[in-house]
């Protein structure tokens, strides 16, 4: 415990904590996306998949327990990810009390510049998203245990769909820099993998954006009703 605490106290330790929780969150983002795509198989498949998530683990786990375990793990990962990044950001701000008159010209990619505020936007969106599709609090016509209906009705409103698409694009940028950064922080230094890190991060980010955006787009276009 003491060892973990002293490791975490260094900035390198905090970044490794961010990378490790990042892996958990990326895995979730991909899994969630694959689940969403079941909407193209029709209401039965999607709804029974949702039911499966509640039942999975039985008889060891009771009804809905798997989902709660997953939620707790994700919440812990998000909490560590946010706390570590806030601490690191404050340290870095303090490291340059007086800035330059001319900010350095060196180009930073849009993705790397927007990690911090992009992360804030994404987490705010996630709160809204849970209130929308999980609890139904901000959903006008929410039917519990009928995700297909909730999804289709929810995305038929184009402002809702647009906000969703915007957040997913932001997530794409976050993943592009985040996944590459993760390999850097965890020290992936095998020469063969080395050159594939950027392209792999790009492919993952683009796949995630397309995989998520295709749902509201198909609903808005009337392909899924």
């Amino acid at each position: 415990m003491k060892q973990i605490a002293s490791f975490y106290s260094t900035t390198v330790g905090k970044k490794i904590a961010m990378a490790a929780t990042g892996i958990v969150l990326v895995a979730y983002v991909v899994g969630h996306m694959l689940g969403n795509l079941k909407i193209f198989q029709g209401p039965e498949k999607l709804n029974s998949y949702a039911e499966f998530l509640r039942e999975v683990g039985a008889p060891v786990l009771g009804h809905g327990e798997f989902l709660w375990i997953a939620r707790i793990v994700l919440l812990a990962a998000v909490a560590i990810h946010i706390v570590a990044s806030a601490q690191l950001t404050l340290q870095s701000r303090a490291a340059r009390p007086v800035g330059y008159r001319n900010t350095p010209h060196q180009e930073f990619s849009y993705a790397s510049r927007t990690m911090r505020w992009g992360g804030v936007i994404i987490s705010l969106f996630v709160v809204y998203h849970i209130l929308h599709f999980t609890s139904g609090t901000v959903h006008g016509d929410f039917i519990p245990n009928d995700p297909y209906h909730n999804l289709v009705v929810g995305f038929q409103s184009w402002p809702v769909a647009l906000a969703y698409i915007g957040a997913v694009v932001m997530l794409g940028f976050h993943l592009y820099h985040g996944v590459w950064s993760m390999t850097q922080t965890l020290g992936v230094n095998n020469a063969r993998i080395e050159r594939m890190r950027r392209p792999a991060a790009l492919v993952l980010a683009v796949a995630v954006v397309i995989g998520y955006v295709v749902v509201p787009v198909s609903i808005l276009a009337g392909w899924v009703t």
């Binding site: 340290q91 990690m115 590459w180 950064s181």
Partner: peptide, 21 residues
């Protein structure tokens, strides 16, 4: 690494500006 931390430098966010400069 510990000394680097103790000196109060910020921490790398992998922008890559340093390798250009």
């Amino acid at each position: 690494v510990e000394q680097m931390e103790a000196e109060g430098f910020g921490n790398c966010t992998n922008h890559g500006a340093c390798q250009i400069a």
